[in-house]
Design a protein around this nucleic acid. Structure first.
Lengths: 194, 194
DNA sequence: TATATAAAAATGAATGTTCATTCTTTTTTT
DNA sequence: AAAAAAAGAATGAACATTCATTTTTATATA
């Protein structure tokens, strides 16, 4: 194993420990010492990879956000119709939230607390551009409601976050049929009804 | 001013300071000393009203949740049609999220982090029963989609939380027209389409 | 190839601060 | 004047970060 690889492994272990512990205890209730222990390194080692605790969580956020959007757009190409494009992206997002539940929960926590620096949040938002572009096209073609992207996101995408939380906390089990219902609701709520 | 009143004032000041500071800094980043300062009491005084910090935040949560649901159901009565009932409740919830933005943000943070005890979260959920009852009736009458309450909530109610966050953080301004759009999306996504 | 040495990476313990909570005293109320 | 409420200072634990050493890795030399 090359030297560089080993470093990356350690960095990844730190990122993963951060996600796990923050999900279960929250940012300020997870000490650096526990992150170190879970990643099998000394506390001091963390500071070879990150400036400080805030930097660690900011970078974790950006990394998970990139994972999320890469996953979301992996099978999407801009040549399809708006409707097909949306279904493609939406289902990938649903997939991500189900399969990468821990990552999804981490993002939800970041997006609903003051735990992440404003700058890193801005950085994270940029990755969503392809979806916004698709919506812009959809509005121009009269297929998607001519309303704010915030409303579109709130109704078409965000509900999946709520479902992931519900699944994690309550006995509620989210299966394929639910996802299909949810997709229909999502599309219904953003498509333009002439 | 009677003795009891004075105590209630102090307790309320503590609850409000907690909401304010937790909204801006998160639970673990708001020291008891700051809560005390903002409420104009000594740190020691907090412990005359609450057992400890966790108890303070649990009770704040339950209180805000009660405020929320009282507001939501204030103008609702069970005699109306499902459709009218839902619109009544939905619009009150929207109102609450806009007018009691700080309270709404506090709830969002509680619901997306491990900051509240499981027991208190359970307690908070109970208050939502009238809405669940309305949905049950709606499903029986074939007016509302026969799907999980979690899905209904995710699609019809939760998006408002996202919008409040977006409004607070981004330049996005949520006005009456948006609310009407949002209501239509909410209803579209839960009504049963024969 | 084997060994010596310099550089880099990693460590565990130490440091100083912050904070929740408690203790003792003072103020207010009855 | 007794009881209750409130205060501010004190206490001790937890924690982020740094420091002094040790261990590992890479490089150079024989």
């Amino acid at each position: 194993m090359a030297k560089l690889q080993k470093s990356i492994d350690k960095r990844n272990a730190l990122i993963n420990a951060t996600i796990d512990l923050v999900n279960n205890n929250g940012f300020h209730a997870t000490p650096m010492s526990k992150i170190a222990k879970m990643a099998n390194v000394s506390p001091a080692t963390i500071y070879l990879y990150f400036d400080n605790k805030q930097d660690l969580v900011n970078k974790t956020y950006i990394e998970v956000k990139a994972l999320y959007t890469n996953y979301a757009f992996a099978t999407y190409n801009t040549d399809t119709s708006v409707e097909v494009g949306f279904e493609t992206i939406w289902k990938r997002i649903a997939d991500f939230k189900l399969k990468e539940c821990d990552n999804a929960m981490f993002l939800a926590q970041c997006d609903n607390t003051p735990m992440i620096d404003e700058l890193s949040r801005q950085e994270g938002i940029k990755h969503l551009q392809p979806l916004l572009d698709l919506w812009a096209r959809g509005k121009k073609e009269g297929i998607i409601k001519p309303i704010s992207d915030y409303l579109l996101y709130a109704y078409a995408i965000n509900p999946l976050s709520f479902l992931v939380m519900a699944q994690k906390r309550d006995a509620f089990q989210l299966d394929e049929a639910h996802i299909e219902d949810a997709y229909q609701a999502a599309w219904d709520s953003i498509k333009f009804n002439k």
